[in-house]
Amino acid sequence: MARKGRVVIAGAATGLLLVAFGKSFVAPTPAGAAVFPENIDIPSIDVDAPLMKLKLEKSGDLQLPPFDKPKMAGWYTGSAVPGDKGASVIVGHVDTKTAPAVFFKLRQIRKGALIKVERSDGKTAEYKVDSVEQIPKTDFPAKRVYVENGLKLVTCGGQFDYAKGEYVDNIIVYASPA
């Protein structure tokens, strides 16, 4: 949960990473690309959610799914399409002011769990969870998330800082093709 308009995922790190390493490390999807992910299914934690496209804001922060659609996750269009080579990043809220959101149970996922991402071309990309980490937002592993191969799922976690209106940590799931 966070105040509206405040980025709770380390989106600024994305912009800094692109500047520091150059855009060649991220596989941007051309505008209007024919293939994109449409749905994410994680049976072990009861997630079956539509995906929306997310871009970087002019500020360099990553857009987030709208809080009024808590059961929707988002795919960062500057990352690889799930099932293709490269880093693929999907983000979702852990909760809203009133209810759990799409990635509420993400911290409960275990190594080896299956993640399926349905694509617009009718294919389904399947991944198995390699690891899950909870890390302070101040130590967000931008290179590992946005550059290294595999699927990454990102949400908020840890303690909620009421003064800042956001969680202090991120929960990150790393997965490899199954």
Rank of each mutant, 00 (worst) to 15 (best):
3 R>I: 12
7 V>K: 11
10 A>H: 05
11 G>F: 00
15 G>W: 09
16 L>F: 13
17 L>D: 00
20 A>Y: 08
22 G>V: 07
22 G>H: 07
23 K>V: 14
23 K>W: 12
25 F>W: 11
25 F>Q: 13
30 P>E: 08
31 A>F: 14
32 G>P: 01
33 A>N: 12
35 V>C: 04
41 D>F: 12
52 M>Y: 01
52 M>L: 12
62 L>R: 06
66 P>K: 14
67 F>R: 09
67 F>P: 08
68 D>R: 06
68 D>N: 13
71 K>R: 11
71 K>E: 11
79 S>H: 02
84 D>K: 14
84 D>P: 10
96 T>K: 06
98 T>K: 14
98 T>S: 13
98 T>R: 11
99 A>H: 10
112 G>S: 08
113 A>G: 06
115 I>T: 05
116 K>G: 06
119 R>V: 02
119 R>I: 08
119 R>L: 15
120 S>H: 03
121 D>K: 10
122 G>L: 08
122 G>Q: 09
126 E>K: 15
128 K>A: 12
131 S>V: 03
135 I>S: 00
136 P>R: 04
138 T>S: 15
143 K>M: 09
144 R>F: 08
148 E>I: 05
148 E>C: 06
153 L>G: 02
153 L>R: 01
159 Q>K: 15
159 Q>G: 11
160 F>M: 11
162 Y>K: 15
163 A>R: 13
165 G>P: 00
167 Y>S: 04
168 V>F: 07
169 D>Q: 00
173 V>R: 03
175 A>P: 09
175 A>M: 05
176 S>N: 12
176 S>C: 00
177 P>V: 12
178 A>G: 13
